[in-house]
């Protein structure tokens, strides 16, 4: 990602243009840029400014706004609910990320060798990725139905009693994590598989000749050379993880007893349930700041462990 300009070719750029030609050129540039610039201005930049402005007010979306300065931020930073919302979001990430990474890496290693039906398996594992979050959430809500779901029935077959899943405050987040990992496993697998395929076979061969066993080859060659793909997966998963919403909204709506109230669910509820648009906007900026800092730390820290060969 560089912002440097490449010098334009002589025939494309005409340094000295007569006024009419210059006007025509300016018009050409405008025609190429306005179709994207106008929507971005109207539907991204202006709402951004609006959101900042709203976050400095108390507002229920109906009566006029009331200026409160930075009070919304101060309130949020000291509130129990905010801490809980970030706590639940971190709980989600802590469960989800190791699960998809370990699962995705295992599958990618298994599929990284010539085998019959590899393309078919790859396509099957990727199927949930193209399915919408709402459908995935509904499928799993039904599978994990405490009374009539097939999962608890199967657990019952071996003589155990299945948990209350999304109806139980202790099991609701694990239920969401399970459904999310199932959906994204194929995505992580595909990214890591592409990374594995980019590792030259000679390296592994040379290590084998030198007497390195399978674990040593994995630990000393595969993992370090896979680190750019790992980095990508971790960065993307953290960004998405902090913004988790769809599956939570459908599976639990933040419940039971607030056990899965994640940050974006909180933003939604503050606005549309409690009529606190100012606080909601402030919270969304707080979340943005957290994601930005976490991402920057990773980009900064990548030198220590990411090996670009």
């Amino acid at each position: 990602m560089t912002l440097t300009e490449t010098p334009p070719a002589a025939s494309v750029k005409q340094p000295i243009r007569p006024p009419r030609k210059r006007l025509r050129y300016a018009l050409t540039v405008a025609v190429f840029l306005l179709p994207s610039a106008v929507p971005l201005l109207l539907f991204t930049l202006i709402p951004m400014a609006g959101s900042l402005w709203t976050s400095l007010h108390e507002w229920n979306l109906i009566t006029p706004m009331k200026w409160v300065g930075l009070d919304n931020y101060a309130d949020l930073l000291s509130s129990e609910e905010t801490r809980a919302a970030f706590g639940h979001t971190l709980y989600f990430i802590a469960g989800y990320l190791p699960l998809v990474y370990a699962g995705g890496l295992g599958l990618a290693m298994l599929l990284n060798r010539a085998m019959k039906g590899r393309d078919l398996f790859r396509a099957i594992y990727f199927l949930p990725v193209v399915t919408s979050w709402v459908v995935v959430a509904l499928l799993w809500k039904w599978l994990l139905n405490p009374a009539s779901g097939i999962v608890n029935w199967a657990i019952g077959l071996v003589g155990l009693e299945g948990p209350g899943w999304w109806t139980d405050p202790d099991w609701a987040m694990p239920s969401i994590i399970l459904a999310s990992a199932w959906k994204d496993l194929g995505f992580v697998m595909i990214i890591l598989l592409a990374g594995l395929q980019a590792i030259p076979n000679e390296y592994l061969e040379a290590a084998r000749v030198d007497g390195a066993n399978a674990w040593q080859r994995f630990r000393r060659i595969t993992l370090p050379l896979l680190s750019p793909s790992t980095f990508f997966v971790v960065v993307i998963s953290l960004i998405n993880g902090f913004q988790v919403f769809d599956q939570v909204h459908v599976m639990t709506g933040g419940g039971p007893a607030g056990a899965t109230q994640v940050v974006v669910e909180q933003v939604y509820n503050l606005t549309f349930k409690y009529g606190r648009a100012g606080a909601a906007s402030a919270l969304s900026w707080l979340l943005f700041a957290v994601v930005l800092v976490v991402t920057l730390i990773q980009v900064r820290g990548q030198r220590r462990w990411v090996n670009y060969g």
Partner: peptide
Amino acid sequence: VYLATLMVPLQVLVVPLFIE
């Protein structure tokens, strides 16, 4: 400026977009 808009997540924009 284009790149900067890329970083702003949807949930920041939802409330003002709704009002707009």
